[in-house]
Computed example of a mutant assay.
Amino acid sequence: MKRLLLVSCLLLLLGSCIKDAPKNPEADITSFSIDPKQLTGDTFIDQANGKILLYLTKEAYEQGVVPTITVSKNAKIYPSSGEKINFNTTGQITYTVTAERPENKKNYVIQVINVGDWSFEFEKWGQNDNDKWEYPIEDDLSTVWSSGNEGVAISGVAKDPLAYPTRSTTDGYMGTRAAEMVTIKGTALSAFVGIYLYAGSLYIGNFNPSVVLTQPLAATEFGEPYVGLPGRFTGYYKYVPGANYQDENQNIIPGRTDECTIYAVLFEGTQRLNGTNILTSDRVVAKAVLNDGSMKSAFTKFDIPFVYRQGWTAQAGTKMMMAIVTSSSKEGDHYRGALGSRLVVDHLAVIPK
């Protein structure tokens, strides 16, 4: 009896010492899956801005889709996974995820990307709520352009649009605004990991912050779905290189002058290419590359034909993607260039055959 009482007392003491496990505070959508036959491009979850970007066929848009959604452990989502989304209804479609710790919630807005219009005037711009970097938006308020600004924000720049390498400018060719890219000095934090400059960049696609620290080139995900075949890539630009070209270790390279880069690439499939393979992948079928990246103090028009891969022919049903890439320093993806290099682009367009 004494032993039984002793064991009971020990169990009571242990029970009083064990606390309930803390509730999970995370409220994320971790996957958002739709029947691949209804997609023209892979779905992208923009965690930083609370958006889910959908690339749908015309039929899927008209008939609606039924997504399969997973969320953080023990979180709840409304509308629920498996509930049909209808896009022909008015109003914004928003998912709300409530964490196991119920005071934590996160909203995700569904955004269907328009794949039909490939002319860009850069008249409208949005601003990130937290870090204040700018990004172009289209007339239908969709966002197809990304930049390195989101990665630069991690390095601790001031929360001011002008502190970032990519932003809007009133110094455009036509209209009220254009896109400006400037190669800027890195921060104290970026220097700690060996990054001494950031080139301004603007490209069609998405920025993936989850890999930026381990695979910075893979963080730039290029491409949006494209219907048909392109014939020419046109637009206006001006460019002034910075005074002193430096390598990735801040060594000044005498006699070297910085260059800008502007090109468009057509490739097969629905998965985006990235900074490691955008010009070298065997999925690339056509390129339109500006070969002259030298100084142009006044706006200069370019009209570049797409050069198709020899022997390639379009197959019925093949899904295609298009990327447009621009940067104030041609080798800025390797942190080489000249501080102060400035590129302005305006009225870019992909003209179909």
Rank of each mutant, 00 (worst) to 15 (best):
N104I: 11
V109N: 07
G156H: 08
A153P: 03
N128Y: 01
D131C: 06
E150N: 06
N107C: 10
D131F: 01
A153K: 04
E123A: 11
E103D: 15
Y173R: 09
Y135K: 03
D139N: 14
E138D: 14
N107E: 14
V144S: 10
D139V: 15
N114P: 08
Y164G: 00
V115T: 15
N149E: 03
I113E: 10
G156S: 10
F122D: 07
G148N: 10
W145Q: 05
E150W: 01
Y135P: 03
G116N: 15
D171V: 07
G156V: 06
W133N: 03
A153S: 09
T143N: 11
Q127P: 07
K132C: 01
V115Y: 08
G126N: 09
E100Q: 13
G172R: 04
V109T: 14
S147L: 02
V112T: 14
D117H: 13
V157A: 01
D140K: 12
S146R: 02
S147D: 03
S146G: 10
G126C: 08
S146A: 15
Y108Q: 05
V109C: 09
P136N: 10
N107Q: 14
V152S: 03
T170W: 09
V157Q: 02
N128A: 08
A153H: 02
K132Y: 02
Y164Q: 04
I113V: 15
E100A: 15
E121P: 00
S142C: 13
V144F: 11
A153G: 04
N149C: 05
I110K: 09
E100G: 07
P102F: 09
S147Y: 04
D171M: 13
D160K: 08
G126Y: 02
R167H: 11
F122H: 12
G172E: 09
G116H: 15
N149L: 04
E103P: 08
V115R: 10
A158F: 10
W145E: 02
Y135C: 01
S155I: 01
E121W: 07
E134W: 07
Y135F: 15
G126R: 02
V157L: 05
K159E: 12
N128E: 04
E138M: 13
V112D: 07
Y173C: 08
E134S: 09
S155C: 09
V115I: 15
S147H: 00
P165L: 06
K132T: 01
F120L: 07
T143S: 12
A163P: 06
V112S: 13
R101K: 15
A99L: 08
S142H: 11
P102G: 06
